[in-house]
Amino acid sequence: MALLTVSGSPHIHGDDNVKKIMYGVVIALIPAMLVSFYYFGISALILTAVSVISCIFFEWAAHKLFFKGKTTISDGSAIITGILLAFNVPSGLPVWMLVIGALVAICVAKMSYGGLGKNPFNPALVGRVFLLISFPVDMTTWPKPSLPFLTTNFTVDGLTGATPLGIIKEGLKQGHTLDTIQNQLPHYAEMLFGQMGGSLGEVSAIAIIIGGFYMLFRKIITWHIPVSFIGTTLAFALILWLIDPTQYVNPLFHLVTGGLMLGAVFMATDMVTSPMNPKGQLLFGFGCGVLTILIRVWGAYPEGVSFAILLMNAVTPLINKGFKPKKFGEVIKNG
């Protein structure tokens, strides 16, 4: 008989582990991924594959070069980063740029801090923002979704167009009124299902919501961040809209366009970079929402979700410090 094992209690473990959580997120990302393949065709497929493979490769390489011991590529976190990074770029992006994005996301934003769990910022967002700042033209050239699957002419210029948010921002800058601009926009229903210009993963709000419910069901995320993020964005946009409907767009427009859904459901809820306490999570979502609208309405960029989340990631340690859970028996002691 083998030696008996001695260890401290507890001697049993719940069936939860990091792998299950990470692959749960991957599963939740599948609907949005399928939508992106449907709308953007083979280019989406290539970009997603390249992104995932290069993320896994960079994580493995960083492990081999800088860390001892087993690599962590099998835990699935690199796959998530890869998919999310691909989701955040336009479908016409040159592949080599995406590889650079993956390098920054994995090596700079994640492994340099010590790997999964130690990164202060969401790696995929860091990669995305790096690309946005480095290659602004390529990152804001949006091929329009084209329904026929397996279209090969994804580099044809005639198919590119701005995102709805970009159209509005540009239009307002040129002094058009909102009414005239809105004629250029797709309908809400179209936007809800993804019929608009945008990054790979952010086009279909419905697909993202399905993934979000799956993660809620698996208890991978809690409702706090998405609800407060989206709620704050809506509320803030509503206030502006009520003040002057000719200058500010309908709050529903903010909801279905751009990366709000993707950010609120998949990026802001990243366990590693979001607060741990429900109250802190509500505050985190609130901050994200306010910053998103601030950047969208008054900022230089048409889209502000990634910046908002990254900024809130930076204050997460503070939020964690400020919001401690209620301790058992504490109220009576103080009272």
Partner: peptide
């Protein structure tokens, strides 16, 4: 069931 599962970094899941 005698041994624990492999120890990884804390992923701050707050569970």
């Amino acid at each position: 069931n005698a041994c624990r599962i492999e120890t990884l970094n804390c992923i701050r899941c707050a569970k």
